[in-house]
Computed example of a mutant assay.
Amino acid sequence: MMLDEPTTLLTDASTVAGPEAGAVRTWIARRSLMLTTSDQLPTGRGGRTVFTLRTVLAIALMHELTKFGVSPNKAGRTASDFFHFGRFYGSPQKWMQPGELFPTGTTWLVAFPSAKDDEVNSPDDRGVRTFLEQVVTADDYRKLFEGNNLHEQGVSRIVINLSLLDSQVRQKLTDIRASRRGDGAHAA
């Protein structure tokens, strides 16, 4: 499945990503969910909303964060940071495309409450700091929960396995499409 090809209806996106379709519509109306230029909003009454896989994955991440009480605006910013902006990682520095998972191991999103002294531009900016972590070894996994040189020890955190989230969303979309074709082999 291509990340930026509009293939998923709003109702299917809601089914595979978790939130109610009405919540997704609200996130769009309030600009909490950043859409791609390929996403298709209805042009008239009764029109269909069609999302790219990138947006469906962002909806799934937003849903996971909001289940922990993160506001939709902050969850949307976090999803946008991962799915719309690339980043450098590792030593030596390598480039990771927007929405790309680490090539080895698993990719985890670690979210922390912002520190009181974090620079903020508005009260809405305070709340969540996030990091991506690559887990290859058991020691890497342990560091997710105990802290390491990037994160303070003893701080509450939300830890989301983005590799698992990605594979679950893709599999659910495959199952929905297979069931519509009448191919019961993939339907769950």
Rank of each mutant, 00 (worst) to 15 (best):
A111E: 01
A111W: 00
A111Q: 02
A111P: 01
A111D: 03
F112S: 04
F112P: 01
F112N: 03
F112I: 04
P113N: 10
P113I: 07
P113A: 11
S114V: 03
S114F: 04
S114H: 09
S114D: 10
A115H: 15
A115T: 15
K116W: 11
D117C: 11
D117R: 15
D118Q: 11
D118A: 09
D118V: 09
E119V: 14
E119Q: 13
V120M: 01
V120E: 03
V120L: 01
V120D: 00
V120N: 03
V120G: 02
V120C: 03
V120Y: 00
N121P: 04
N121T: 09
N121E: 14
N121Q: 13
S122E: 09
S122K: 08
S122G: 12
S122A: 14
P123Q: 04
P123W: 04
P123H: 06
D124I: 09
D124L: 10
D124E: 10
D124V: 13
D124G: 05
D125Y: 01
D125N: 04
D125V: 00
D125L: 00
R126A: 14
R126I: 10
G127F: 00
G127Y: 02
G127A: 01
V128Q: 03
V128L: 06
V128G: 01
V128C: 00
V128N: 02
T130S: 11
T130P: 02
T130V: 14
T130D: 09
F131E: 06
F131C: 05
F131A: 09
F131P: 01
F131S: 08
L132A: 04
L132Y: 02
L132S: 06
E133P: 01
E133G: 04
Q134G: 12
Q134W: 05
Q134C: 12
V135Q: 02
V135Y: 06
V136G: 05
V136L: 08
V136Q: 08
V136K: 14
V136R: 12
V136E: 08
V136Y: 09
T137D: 04
T137W: 03
T137K: 01
T137P: 03
T137I: 04
T137Q: 03
A138P: 06
A138D: 15
A138K: 11
D139W: 03
D139Y: 07
D140G: 09
D140Y: 08
D140T: 06
Y141F: 12
R142Y: 15
R142I: 13
R142M: 13
R142T: 14
L144R: 05
L144N: 04
L144G: 04
L144P: 05
L144F: 09
F145Q: 12
F145A: 14
F145Y: 15
F145S: 13
F145L: 10
F145N: 15
E146G: 11
E146K: 15
